[in-house]
Nucleic acid binder design. Sequence first.
DNA 1: CCTTGACATAAGCCATAGCTTATATTAGTC
DNA 2: GACTAATATAAGCTATGGCTTATGTCAAGG
Lengths: 113, 113
Amino acid sequence: MHAFEVLADPVRRRILELLAGGELASGAVVEVVRAEFGISQPAVSQHLRVLRDHGFASARPEGARRIYCVEARALEQVNSWLQRFAHLWDQPLDALDTEIARGKRSRRAAKKK
Amino acid sequence: MHAFEVLADPVRRRILELLAGGELASGAVVEVVRAEFGISQPAVSQHLRVLRDHGFASARPEGARRIYCVEARALEQVNSWLQRFAHLWDQPLDALDTEIARGKRSRRAAKKK
DNA sequence: CCTTGACATAAGCCATAGCTTATATTAGTC
DNA sequence: GACTAATATAAGCTATGGCTTATGTCAAGG
């Protein structure tokens, strides 16, 4: 399953959003997702497994609970693919940055004189 | 179909990569994709439709041909969702930027003395 | 205007993702 | 060590996405 397929599911995206706010026990994730999507505990557990298996999240046991944590690896990969198209939206910002840099350089140059 | 589902398909991702290199007629896309994935012209056409219908691409007629062009809207949306997690991978870079900025400031300060 | 070339749409088939219920595992508690 | 709580896995069902073949549309050329 490709990273983008993992993110294609709304429940998994939501789980990642939740984990982005800090570590959470499986049970806590189940509660929220159950409330919002109306699916069962096993369904959520399966989603968590997919996230683990593809490097989007990791889990460590803490007693009987499993604490989940968002993981950079996979998300970063997705991001790096997407950056191929970054020029489509942050061209204006790039231009601004360039302008700012140019401004700084000319100000520095002026100082040296 | 959610934007991430659109990107979940490898053929569609490949098509976007192709279009990122500049506008292309449907036929040109079909040729490449057919060679790489071994699927039929209608299959590719269907993918192009999905890309159009979800704001990833647009097409304008040019005689009998249809010229396809990558479109920012949808890709930007995907990117903006992803940026929620940007701190996971560009934290080091941020730190570096901060360091650079700090360095610049202190160098400027040194000059003034 | 009929044909050819470029592309889109229609209809139908098949694989699989994601759900459910039922059950296994494992950690703490009495 | 039986019981409960927290989570994971198994098995089976169903909906749907993506493919195929067949056909429709529409522009250009003779």
